[in-house]
Amino acid sequence: MAGFDKVVSSYEEAMQGLKDGDTVIAGGFGLCGIPEGLIAEIKKQGTKDLTLVSNNCGVDDFGLGILLQDKQIKKIIASYVGENALFEQQLLSGEIDVELTPQGTLAEKMRAGGAGIPGFYTATGYGTPIAEDKEVKEFNGRPYILEESITGEFAIIKAWKADRYGNLVFRHTAMNFNPMAATAGKITVVEVEEIVEPGELAPSEIHTPGIYVNRVIKGSFEKRIERVTTRPST
């Protein structure tokens, strides 16, 4: 009886079932709070024509950026891709399609997708290029555009702690998009720093309830920092 034991022991098992052409929703903000081992596994499996939904696309040699090296990504839906030269190259040469999406709209698309809400109206982007071909509706005299929600075959998540039920706790700003992404995957896979005993996480401290989570794997993380900024210690 597996019951609610969602812990898997290999990355292969964690990403089992991922196919060419799938949509993968990834948590993370820049390189902060990204499922490093799950991304590496996708690279290893060599799955192609993926649609990736993530705030950013990593950097050239780390994070989601490594999936660009073997041209595994067909399309990316992101708010900011400025850190990645390889991405810009593939975009300009037409090898990859990009749908730049405002950050708040992206978060809401994931949230709504996971909550069974197919679309929503927002003032964000009205009158800008991203509003092209989108329905406009006025509420209380202000125009809003219709945005459609997002779900994916897979969601890949990074959390701090999980129990075998898939209950998750995130650490500091490594939370970012992870809780929304976790709700929007048909199969949600979480890579964590620590798997704790059942009951160790207090019910009221859980950020993401295990109902959204299908698989949990204990990873090890490099946690690369994009910009180390410090003040002198005096």
Partner: peptide, 8 residues
């Protein structure tokens, strides 16, 4: 072409 981030 970097993206709008949260600006919009």
């Amino acid at each position: 072409i970097k993206g709008m981030g949260g600006a919009m």
